[in-house]
Design a protein around this nucleic acid. Structure first.
Lengths: 335, 335
DNA sequence: TCAAGATGCTAATTCGAATTATTACAGGGT
DNA sequence: ACCCTGTAATAATTCGAATTAGCATCTTGA
């Protein structure tokens, strides 16, 4: 196998020392460093001809920065099942990385012990990159704590609770988005609302439920929380508007209602809160909000840049955009 | 920020040398290396207490292998439009990389001059990776030649003609797949066939057309080649079976025929050759073949491993699988 | 008692690039 | 001839871990 070129090789070809090549390569012109124009040109010519690039490993060993940003996901990055949901995040990440002149390193080598990747395995390669973007619905608590503790530059896509310290993240403001939906529902006369979904576990779930509770409390209306959306149970309780955490649950609810001869949103309003862990039928245009996924990806990379440059701990929540669907209408409940 | 522990630190704490720590850490017990049980225990205890882990960077530097595989695509990797087509390749690549314990580097930094990326720009970072997988319908001829000339370890997904030397690749055997389709058509009585599509430019196109010509010649039947599939023209020429290079062209042809009141495959058989540069309607179940995209991705990474380890130039074509659709039937032409 | 052989560990080197300290040399002034 | 000042380049060191050669020390057998 053709051995990789080193600075020493370039130096020999150009008839200079390794140090000179390094100086030329890094365009060092500060005090005390002088390279004759003629020499510089000669070295650059050899570099151009050979297509030499510095070994990122050696570079990183010496200082920090190799213009490589890591992307860690607990599951495979390119699976068709989740593609629809994760793709926009990755598009945003890729876009912004391109803009920043950085390459992306996908940590596919992470040992998939018992089906799930772990950030810290026997020889974690996380430090190969300058910094790292974390992607996933929920992220292992211990992994997160260790990242913070070891001061590894990273940014999570999605808000995360503290883990032995504040966790840098770029998330979506689910609480505000859900409050907004409740506001709209109440404005349309709804007084008996229900939140259907876990509402716990991942931060994204908790945030949604919190927004729901805040809003119903503020309006002084009735808001119940059920794990799964049983249509009969909901109707029996007099609920007129259901907020389904999971997209597919919302869609299923609409179909079930229509099956029973009920009208949506005539008899029941159904809102979705954008979580998509399962594929959903796309023939139901649910009212809800759009998660700014692409934008989150972009901002996460920008935030990572800030972490790298200033050692800050950025935390940011992006607003979700209301989506006018066909499943929210006036309440028809007699009071 | 607390500085990271080094082996030197551990050595001092345990009252031994850095070399000893390394030996203990790697559990080296081969010939010539001996560490007293008591010493080993002492070192391990310090390691356990401090939670020390070896710096992966320094480790890599020493063993000359970054375990980074590059993925080069001329377009963005995560675009929603082409996702359906490229995704399976990437899935395969990711799978196999994971198995090989390598990380994937996406060359997002490649300058997009005039909308298209180039492998060799002013400061190409292609050599950041140990080797590289190339993905794309057609790959710039000069780029390819330079890769060969500079002996950069790489493997192309898709067959490529020589470019100043043989190009390592893992492709699909389009020629054989098309021959098979022609065989089937002829067996069903078709004697006037047409190939609709470029048939040139990318190797994948040329291979298909070549297979077509070989097969019609072997059977002694009539086979014409048209650039675009004009229904009237084809029917006027007495064609009973059309092989459309482009998936969407095939679908369009079927729809156009039915529009005219013709039956497919009653009056006209339409076969597709799997090329998908444009999205196609999916309500027509065309007969044709399946490109083993995921397997191609996997094999490409395996081939790259071989290139890296033995400096070989693997070339391999994977078989396509026949897909029984609804658009191939008996010829009804009177002879 | 003294060479041969085991045993246990360490000094020194290596990987590739970045940086600091230092040398070599030319030309100008006295 | 001698010192001084720029200028241009290099030698040497650094990063952290892996590896090899080799140095003590201790046994053992004749």
């Amino acid at each position: 196998m053709a051995k990789r070129l080193t600075q020493q090789d370039i130096a020999r070809m150009a008839g200079v020392s390794q140090a000179t090549v390094s100086l030329v390569l890094n365009n060092r012109t500060d005090s005390g460093v002088r390279i004759a124009e003629e020499t510089r040109a000669r070295v650059l010519e050899v570099i151009r001809r050979t297509g030499y690039v510095a070994n990122p490993i050696a570079r990183r060993l010496h200082d920090q920065r190799n213009r490589i940003l890591g992307v860690f996901t607990y599951e495979a990055v390119f699976p068709s099942t989740r593609a629809d949901f994760y793709q926009p995040f990755l598009e945003g990440i890729e876009e912004q990385a391109e803009e920043a002149g950085c390459d992306l390193l996908l940590f596919t080598s992470a040992k998939a012990t018992s089906g799930k990747r772990r950030i810290f395995s026997d020889d974690s390669r996380i430090r190969l990159a300058d910094g790292c973007v974390l992607l996933g619905r929920s992220i292992d608590r211990d992994d997160l704590a260790q990242l913070v503790k070891e001061a590894i530059p990273f940014v999570s896509v999605g808000r995360r609770d503290d883990a032995g310290g504040p966790v840098p993240h770029v998330g979506a403001d689910y609480a505000a988005a859900v409050r907004d939906l409740v506001d709209r529902a109440v404005a349309l006369g709804h007084r008996e609302l229900a939140y259907a979904g876990a509402g716990t576990g991942a931060e994204s779930s908790a945030d949604r439920l919190r927004g729901f509770k805040q809003a119903v409390a503020a309006h002084g209306v009735k808001g119940t929380h059920v794990q799964s959306a049983g249509l009969g149970q909901l109707l029996g309780a007099g609920v007129t508007c259901v907020l389904a955490e999971e997209l597919s649950d919302g869609a299923a609810l609409v179909l079930a209602a229509r099956e029973r001869g009920l009208s949506v949103p005539g008899d029941l309003s159904v809102l979705t809160l954008g979580a998509a862990t399962r594929p959903a039928p796309d023939d139901v245009r649910l009212t809800g909000f759009r998660i700014p996924r692409r934008e989150m990806g972009r901002r996460a990379v920008q935030a990572l840049t800030e972490v790298l440059e200033h050692g800050t701990t950025p935390q940011e929540l992006l607003a979700c955009e209301f989506v006018e669907g066909t499943t929210l209408g006036h309440s028809t409940a007699q009071r």
